[in-house]
Amino acid sequence: MNGGDYLTPSLMLALLAGCGIGGGIALFVAALVGWARPAGTKVSASKQIAAFLRRRAGAAILVGLVVLVALRWPVAAVGAALLVLFWPALFGGARSERVALARVEALATWTEALRDTIAGAAGLEQAIGASARTAGDTLRPHLLTLDDRIRSRMPLSEALDRLADDLDDGGADLVIAALKQSAGLRGEGLRDVLTDLAGSARAQVGMRRRVFASRAGTRRSVQIVVGVIVSVVVGMRVFNPSYTEPYGTPQGQAVLALVLMLFAVGLVWLQRLSRVPAPKRFLVKQTGAAS
């Protein structure tokens, strides 16, 4: 074996391992000290990125190092680290869906409470104040803020627009828009509108429950497929190393990188197929946001 044949594979593996470990260390340090926020960057966005890194970067680095030591495949180590890092984006979303579902259900319950509170000549402003304190936990803080704004003499239409911005949900916009349109009604007219609104919100809750259950099954299936594939690859590498020996060469690592890229494209595609777009917001300000 001449010097060129010996050095080329070792050099390639060392470069790949150095890139993977160096990138992992950089992410780990960034998770600890945070990112330097450029001028003009929104604070909320930087906080979300830092929180995401703190939660996932350490686990991703640890898994990548374990895979590198166990398999001695730098490409597999980088792929495993990226899989852990982006696991919530590929297989998550259940928590946010539960929050959105709870919010729409709380809106339906609150709309029914509004309808039942209105009596005689009582208007929407009085009904909001009476029903805000008994609303669901996900909605009560926003409704109490709405009541405070109304009590401070803010016009009802503007207060409802602010509520829509606070909730930031397309389904909530439907209810709030109808409330704005019916704000001048009294008695039976307003109660009829609120009854229709509550029925529409309940129908939306049922639809979202069915979609949520369907997506949960899809996520479980994809997770099982990923787990089986990873287990088979690790098992072959550990118990039958001669079969996977070609992947230890630079050419094999290049082929493995291509396979992992196709696998990642498939996962992203499945995630997009299972995504159900939420109703788009339409109660948005056309001018600069008010302070």
Score class of each variant (00 low, 15 high):
Thr8Cys: 00
Arg219Leu: 13
Leu270Tyr: 13
Ala178Ser: 14
Val63Pro: 08
Arg72Thr: 11
Val233Pro: 05
Gly58Phe: 14
Val268Ile: 14
Tyr243Pro: 02
Tyr243Lys: 12
Glu112Leu: 05
Trp110His: 14
Ser131His: 05
Lys180Glu: 13
Glu188Ala: 12
Phe239Trp: 13
Ala94Pro: 01
Thr249Val: 00
Arg219Asp: 04
Ser231Asn: 03
Leu144Arg: 12
Leu144Ser: 06
Arg72Cys: 10
Gly217Val: 14
Ala106His: 15
Asn240His: 10
Ile176Leu: 04
Gly187Leu: 04
Gly58Asp: 03
Gly4Ile: 10
Gln223Met: 09
Met12Glu: 01
Ala201Arg: 09
Thr249Arg: 09
Leu62Thr: 10
Glu97Trp: 00
Glu158Phe: 02
Ile49Arg: 15
Gly92Met: 03
Tyr243Gly: 04
Thr8Lys: 07
Leu90Pro: 02
Trp73His: 09
Thr111Ile: 10
Pro279Cys: 04
Tyr247Gln: 02
Gly92Ala: 01
Arg219Ile: 15
Ile118Arg: 06
Gly227Cys: 12
Arg55Glu: 07
Cys19Gln: 06
Phe52Glu: 03
Val284Tyr: 08
Arg98Asp: 15
Gly40Met: 02
Thr287Tyr: 08
Gln253Gly: 13
Ala130Ile: 04
Ile61Asp: 13
Ala119Cys: 03
Gly18Asn: 09
Ser274Trp: 07
Val268Asn: 06
Gly252Tyr: 10
Trp269Glu: 05
Asn240Tyr: 15
Leu174Tyr: 08
Pro241Tyr: 01
Val78Met: 14
Val268Arg: 14
Arg115His: 09
Ile229Pro: 00
Ala130Lys: 08
Leu179Ile: 05
Thr287Cys: 00
Ala130Cys: 06
Trp110Met: 07
Val211His: 07
Ser214Trp: 08
Arg281Val: 00
Ala14His: 00
Ala36Asn: 15
Tyr6Phe: 11
Ala203Asn: 03
Glu105Ala: 08
Asp196Thr: 13
Leu32Asn: 06
Ala159Glu: 04
Arg191Cys: 05
Ala135Phe: 01
Tyr247Lys: 02
Pro141Tyr: 09
Leu13Asp: 06
Ala290Cys: 08
Ala31Glu: 09
Trp110Arg: 05
Ala76Lys: 01
Ala198Val: 00
Phe86Ser: 11
Gly217Lys: 15
Thr244Ile: 04
Ala164Thr: 07
Leu146Met: 02
Met154Ser: 09
Ala172Asp: 08
Gly123Lys: 06
Ala183Leu: 10
Arg55Ser: 12
Pro250Gln: 07
Leu256Cys: 11
Ala36Ile: 14
Val69Thr: 14
Arg151Thr: 11
Glu188Tyr: 00
Arg237Thr: 12
Val225Ile: 15
Gly34His: 11
Ala26Trp: 12
Ala76Gln: 10
Pro277Thr: 02
Asn240Met: 12
Asp169Gly: 02
Gly199Ile: 08
Thr145Gln: 10
Ser221Pro: 03
Arg98Ala: 14
Pro250Ile: 02
Thr134Val: 07
Lys42Trp: 01
Gly20Cys: 09
Arg191Val: 08
Asn2Phe: 15
Arg220Pro: 00
Ala201Pro: 01
Gly18Ile: 12
Cys19Gly: 13
Gly92Gln: 02
Arg56Gln: 15
Gly58Val: 05
Lys42Gly: 05
Ile118His: 01
Ser46Thr: 05
Thr109Ile: 05
Val69Asp: 07
Ala164Trp: 10
Gln204Gly: 01
Ile49Tyr: 10
Gly184Glu: 10
Gly248Tyr: 05
Leu68Thr: 07
